[in-house]
């Protein structure tokens, strides 16, 4: 670290490298359960033109496929609820909480 608050250059966007998304998610503890607590019916996503889940999920768990569907992975889920709220397709997302004791665990100091 250099002198605090001393601008090193004027390109503020590149003062330090942004971490990769996987490194970002690796800072979070997940005690993954074998049961997927959220199930996405990818076939229902094929006709969806907005795919809001892809943009809004803070854990970036919704990945569009070349055939217009969605691939979803539940393992690094914050359990926030954003996906089912922004979803436009009835029945595409079946959302429950993980089994007790599992899922995201935010850190104590």
């Amino acid at each position: 670290m250099t002198a605090h608050g001393t601008p090193r250059n004027h390109d503020h966007a590149h003062r330090w490298p942004e971490i990769s998304f996987q490194d970002r998610m690796d800072t979070v503890r997940f005690d993954v359960h074998e049961r997927a607590h959220i199930v996405v019916d990818g076939s229902k996503c094929e006709g969806c033109s907005t795919q809001h889940c892809v943009v809004a999920c803070p854990a970036n768990l919704f990945v569009p496929t070349s055939d217009g569907g969605i691939v979803f992975n539940y393992e690094q889920c914050f359990e926030c609820g954003t996906c089912y709220l922004v979803c436009n397709v009835e029945g595409a997302i079946t959302w429950t909480y993980p089994d007790g004791g599992h899922g995201v665990v935010f850190r104590r100091t």
Binding site: G5, P7, H12, R15, T27, V28, G81, T82, L85, F106
Partner: peptide
């Protein structure tokens, strides 16, 4: 974080935890 008014406050800091909630 890259805004000129915020960047000097957080420069050089490492992400310890990322989190989200509704």
């Amino acid at each position: 974080k890259s805004h000129p008014a915020i960047a000097p406050l957080v420069e050089g800091a490492e992400v310890k935890e990322y989190s989200a909630h509704l």
